[in-house]
Amino acid sequence: MENYMKLEVPAKSCNESFVRAAVAAFSVQLDLSIEEMCDIKTAVSEAVTNSIVHGYANMKGIVKITCKVIDSVLEIEIADYGVGIEDVSQAMQPLFTSGPEGERSGMGFTVMQTFMDELLVKSKPGEGTVVTMKKRIGG
C-alpha cells in the first residue's frame, strides 16, 4: 500500500494537538495498536513543539508535515524554515536545551528516538530544520 498526506499549519502552540491528531487519524489505515498510535502522537508532538519553540522561537512561521505510508512503514517529515540548529548532535543529547522558556525538559529528541524506529535530523542555521521519523507498524 502507498499513500500520503500533506499538512501546513502556522507555528502556533494550539496547532500541536491538531497536528498529532491529524497524523494519528492518517495512521489508522495501518491497523496499528493503541501503543503504536500513542508513540506516533508523542513523537509528532515533540517535533512540532521543537519547530514552534526553537525553530521560530514563538515568532511567526510555517510548519509543514508530510506523512507517507509505504507497506507497513509510516514515515513522517516535519519541516520548519526557522533559525535551524547549529550543532545537531549536541541538540540531540538527552537533557540538552537551548529553550528560551523555562522548564523545557530537553527530552524532545530522546522521546522521538525512543518512540520511533528511525530518526533523521537535517538542519542548517538560518534555513530551518527537517525531522524525518519512521515507524514500522506491527514490527
Binding site: 508523542t42 508532538s45 515533540e46 513543539t49 522548564e103 523545557r104 525538559s105 527530552m107 524532545g108 522521546v111
Partner: peptide, 13 residues
Amino acid sequence: TFMDSSGIGVIAG
C-alpha cells in the same frame, strides 16, 4: 489522555 515532554518539564519544576 496524552502527555509529551512538556509535561516532564512541568513535573520536574
